[in-house]
Amino acid sequence: MTAVARVRDVTMRFRDHTALDSLSTGIEQDAITGLLGRNGAGKTTLMQLLTGHRVPTSGSVEVFGAAPYENDAVLSRTCFVKEGQRYPDHFRVRDALAAAAAVFPRWDADLAARLVADFDLPPDRAIRKLSRGMNSAVGIVIGLASRAPLTLFDEPYLGLDAVARQLFYDRLLADYAEHPRSVILSTHLIEEISDLLERVLLIDRGRLLLDTDAESVRDSAVTVTGPADRVRSLAADHELLHAETLGPHGRAVVRLRPGTDLDDVRTAGLTPEPTSLQQLVVALSLHTSGAGAGAPTDLEEVSR
């Protein structure tokens, strides 16, 4: 893969809290990458490092082949749309757009105007008087119209209703298709965006749990249901991520060993189904936190 950005062995500590723990990864160029993980997993910290808002405690960060911190050559090509972005008090919507137009060399004013209309934004209203959703929409307009070669959206949807979120996804896809660029999208609404992604990064407590292409995520885990004892014996042969039972009935999310034939699973009296990205993220995150299944089950012991 061609990486637009790389972090190597990056650790970020805040007093006694370790936000990122020896994390290494690359951000694929001209791909849409989903940055997933629970609250406090380290997603925002990673984005702050990539955009030069912070310097790591140790390790190296490289964006467009250089360290991003206080580096204009990197930062003019990077757009970071932050959750709950603040603007100067007197700024109207049009002032925020004019400021962005001055900062981003590839700014597309026509696209910005179209998006302002799409999201029903009032250009002359003070941003501090906007609703939360409209504030988010301003960030989305800037993020898309910047056409920055590396664009990061950190939970850009706060306060946006389902219609506006769909509008965001549609406009993102359409503009990305015409002007491919590297996009990092951090979100908890995994189900909504899973089909948009080409790459998936899952972090948990500062460590990387998944770093893969979205297509292989779908193939990597299956949910099997059937008689609990058969589910248990299948799980013993593969990597069990999550298990639940209801009386004699069992369900497990397992990572099958490569080359496993699903017909063999069916022949064993079990029903295999694909595991969605969201289900896998939940199962993996619970698996590593040791929380396991909510109710104690004997299947759980297999996962130890």
């Binding site: 996804y169 549609d170 896809l173 359409a174 298709a177 491919p180 992604l197 080409e198």
Partner: peptide, 8 residues
């Protein structure tokens, strides 16, 4: 991609 809302 646009019609099915998937990555190009």
């Amino acid at each position: 991609a646009a019609f099915h809302r998937i990555n190009p």
